[in-house]
Computed example of a mutant assay.
Amino acid sequence: MMKCIDVFNGDADGICALHQLRLHEPQLEARLISGVKRDSALLAQISDAQDSRITVLDISLDKNRVALEQLLAAGNLVFYADHHHAGEVPVSERLTVHLDLEPLICTSLIVNRLLKDKHAAWAAVGAFGDNLDEAACQLAHRLGLKGLEQLRETGILLNYNGYGDTVDDLFFHPVALYLHVQAYTDPLEFHADSKFLQTLREGYKGDMDNALSLLPLYEDRGGRVLQLPAESWARRVSGVCANTLARQRPTLAHALLTENRDSTLRISVRAPLHNRNGADVLCRQFPSGGGRAAAAGINALPADQLDEFIRAFSCQFGRLFF
């Protein structure tokens, strides 16, 4: 009998995508692999797997191609759903791929489409977490889902828990958070009852108050760049703060910089909500950069390349040229 391994991004989208699949097809003894949101090369952790049915959700195929090819060569069956830059997709009868790189799609919505709205409220939570409020609201209105504000807050808080340099920065390991979510069929019941969510709610408020008090490091007509301090709260809040700033000023691009422990810079970039393109193109110009058109990032930018990044940021979003 084949073993089951579930590999998923540690943010709201990854958790909600997997939760939908396992509500539909439970796997009680699955091995679970996840990490902080930026830990996208997760397949390397299971490169020696054999005789396994592997589900991979919400991590870039481009960042995992070598490990994926090894897993396929070893005879494993792989189901892969994602919305990030993929590059060349391996051709194998043992690989099932569902990729959609459109700016208003996320992995939870891809899975919802496959399951024909069977657990759509969780898909809306995942979409809200990925700052795709419009897509989440469209889904909710189409199906008459209730409690939109509760679904939105749940998505934001699950997403907030995924950001950090290491899992030590997080309130909960993403696997532990997923296992907690797994007990709930209804996200509104989860929102009302979850002690985990209450912990995240309190942490989120304090971290966001700190972040939103900062002034921009750089600003022009096309966007804003903010730098957060080298502290755990800043590493936790970087992604959700970037989403909040993007909603406050939807015509602007935003970049949030956080200093890593090795003095490199971790960067979260959001394209303008009025034109959700270019974030991935910008970030892939730098080593360790990647993501999707609307939201992308750089894991470890050398500090002496900050000026180069700011020039590229300004040029990418078309307002100021050097």
Rank of each mutant, 00 (worst) to 15 (best):
G297V: 04
G162N: 05
V97R: 04
D304Q: 14
T166R: 09
S47C: 13
Y160S: 08
S60K: 10
F190S: 01
G14T: 09
V281F: 06
L188A: 03
L57E: 02
A41Y: 07
I46K: 12
V125H: 04
L257W: 03
Q150A: 15
K63D: 07
R276W: 04
R319K: 15
D186P: 00
G239L: 10
T154Q: 07
A253E: 10
F190D: 00
L158F: 06
T251P: 11
V78N: 02
I110A: 01
Q150W: 03
G155M: 02
T251L: 14
L306V: 06
E202F: 08
V281P: 01
A41P: 10
L282A: 08
R266S: 15
G297Y: 12
G14L: 06
I15T: 09
Q227N: 05
R276H: 07
L132N: 03
P302D: 14
N161W: 11
Q70S: 15
R221I: 10
D82M: 04
E102R: 13
H173N: 09
R38D: 09
Y160V: 06
K146W: 00
A127G: 08
A67T: 05
I298N: 05
L77P: 01
L320E: 15
V269M: 05
C4D: 14
A295E: 03
L148V: 10
L217Q: 07
V89Q: 07
D165G: 08
L256S: 02
G297W: 11
A294S: 13
L101A: 09
